[in-house]
Amino acid sequence: MIELKDVAKSFTLHNQGAAVIPVMQNATLSVQPGECVALVGASGAGKSTLMRMIYGNYLAQAGCIVVDGVDVARAEPREILELRRVTIGYVSQFLRVVPRVPTLDVVAEPLLAVGVELEAARARAAALLERLNIPRTLWGLSPTTFSGGEQQRVNVARGFAHGYPALLLDEPTASLDAVNRATVLALIEEAKARGAAIVGIFHDAAAREQVCDREIDVTGFTPQRAA
């Protein structure tokens, strides 16, 4: 479902003397449907960078990033937009939404985007918010004013609303209490059971242990710096 081969990434800072900073090379990995793979490695090793490249948010300098047959490293914007609409979901650590849009609609939006009727989409969104313990009184409000933990859960609900065949999860359990953490892990198990291919970043070792089938240490993809 997700196949990376020899992916390389560097940043060129044009306004700082055109400094070129290589951050990744020969990144290769493969994730099958129903499998959850954890990216591990020290902070700054490139876990989030790799995840962003799979989503098409960062450009790759070399290699292939094939998600459901589409090479994200070479695809047209239109193809990546379609892939994001239907195939690949991304739960980032940040909630980016249009201000003033009610939480229920923020969560329902990915379903509307794939053609689900408004009522059905809202019902699914409500069920997820209920499970993630977002009080009903908040559903009509914009999540921009919510606490960090609440925003995190809204982000998770949004990411799990549509049954994407591929999922990218960046610290989905960070800043959650034990009950909500368990709910998020259950959602991940359910996604795996329906055949989703998942790539995750979890600082929470116990969570990683529970839901991930294997680990990939991205330190192995760090370019050797010239001395």
């Binding site: 044009h14 098409g56 948010n57 960062y58 450009l59």
Partner: peptide
């Protein structure tokens, strides 16, 4: 030119 979030998060041109 490109995907909006890609151009804003990983801009290539100076």
């Amino acid at each position: 030119a490109g995907l909006t979030d890609q151009v804003l998060d990983d801009p290539q041109h100076g």
